[in-house]
Design a protein around this nucleic acid. Structure first.
Lengths: 249, 249
DNA sequence: CGATATATCAATCGATCGATTGATTTTGTC
DNA sequence: GACAAAATCAATCGATCGATTGATATATCG
């Protein structure tokens, strides 16, 4: 379950760290308590930062929810700020890992000699995969909330998130560009991509409201299938005009 | 500019208020300082609560940004919590006011004998109006951020926002229902409405990221026109299948 | 002008925040 | 078992939080 390592990605957290988990050339424990505590703190912080924001999320609450001592945060990460950076890195790493295969495939296709028919199929595949992974993966709601929270106070780690997850890592713009005869970085391609991502993000950011309208307490398989079908249908229709209708499944 | 009154909508803010602006049967001042201070505090709080969240937004910061004294918050509103409630009421009031005419028109249409052709035109009108008002109105980004922030910590004033802005006030579900042969409160109608709203909300919640991709510092008329065109086109195509293509402008 | 309600202000309260400390427990090597 | 590094813990620090206080300033009446 806990694949994360993170190890020493933040040495001196702003100039404070007196003692840190050296992780030098020392043997690993048979049962690494430290790594487990670190991971529990990371997940608790991911939820707390995303839900309450950086300042409102108290280290005491994070430590308590991680079943760890308050001082463990400074011990394992260096400071509250460093913990926030570690969470950012974790989110980027997780999303990148989940996206890697499909995005690489789409990028490879774009680097070849793409045409509209192929781009439409590739877009459908990418969207289907984004919807599934972003809605099925349980942690994904935490990732979305954390990232969108950063947007509201665009100072902290906004740049890192942007560079790793948005700029040119995402082949969505390229596919849209081909289908609509637009330059990949043209304003319209960017706006069109945003409207597509918005249809997915709304089910993260607005989940409480949607759950209430649906009269549910959680999104079950039935609702997730419905959401996936509607989003995929919508995008199929949006890009459908670019090509004569076909039977691509 | 300041139409707001709010007057005595929160009497005793949780049982604290020793002195409050009585606003009894006393004549209004020629130059009402209190109302101005109250409104400046309200706008500053709207921005701060939406941006940093309830707890992270400090009353000292709000007072400073409103060019008012710290104690003015308790004096005019009763407490930080009451200020938050007042902001919620203000947002509901503003959105309701901006939406009133168009939503009433759509509701009237739904209460008549609606057909698909009329519903499509009505939907197009409603969407166009939502896009324009939500993107053109300068305060709208603050409203969206505030509401979406509530979603992340669905405790506080979530119910009030939901009841006034979502439940059955919004005729979007009804129009979608007619166009897709769905019951207005069916799961699919709700999900379809959400994907439509997501295409608009993304430009509020993700504005910093989109601005960066566009290489802009702000959304000018040019970009707003583009966004409006793309969103309206998308929705036209999404619902277009429900009807044979026509030339309705 | 007083008289009075309205409004603003600096100073201060207890509570909680992030961070630090020194002691203690756990773990692995010799 | 002796020893040290890794890890956890309770207690505590100064800073800042929301809220309160009493004094002062402003505005509208008789």
């Amino acid at each position: 379950m806990a694949k994360l390592e993170l190890e020493a990605s933040e040495r001196d957290a702003g100039g404070s760290g007196p003692q840190m988990p050296a992780s030098r050339h020392y043997r690993k424990a048979r049962h690494d308590r430290g790594a487990e505590t670190r991971h529990r703190l990371l997940l608790a912080a991911l939820d707390a930062f995303g839900r309450y924001g950086f300042e409102a999320a108290s280290t005491r609450d994070i430590a308590k929810r991680a079943d760890a001592n308050l001082a463990a945060i400074v011990y394992h990460f260096g400071s509250k700020e460093a913990l926030h950076r570690a969470v950012t890195e974790y989110v980027i790493e997780q999303i990148t890992r989940h996206m890697h295969t499909e995005q690489a495939e789409a990028r490879d296709y774009l680097n070849g000699s793409p045409d509209k028919a192929g781009a439409r199929i590739m877009l459908r595949k990418l969207i289907r995969w984004k919807v599934q992974s972003m809605l099925r993966e349980e942690e994904a709601e935490l990732w979305s909330r954390f990232i969108l929270r950063e947007q509201m106070d665009p100072s902290s780690t906004f740049d890192a998130v942007y560079e790793h997850l948005c700029s040119d890592q995402d082949p969505l713009n390229g596919l849209i560009g081909i289908l609509f005869d637009l330059a990949p970085q043209s304003d319209e391609a960017i706006v069109r991509s945003a409207t597509i991502m918005g249809q997915i993000f709304i089910f993260h950011i607005g989940r409480p409201m949607i759950l209430r309208r649906l009269g549910r307490n959680a999104l079950g398989d039935e609702e997730l299938d419905l959401i996936a079908r509607v989003v995929e249908e919508n995008i199929d229709r949006i890009v459908g005009f670019a090509l004569p209708l076909e039977t691509a499944a």
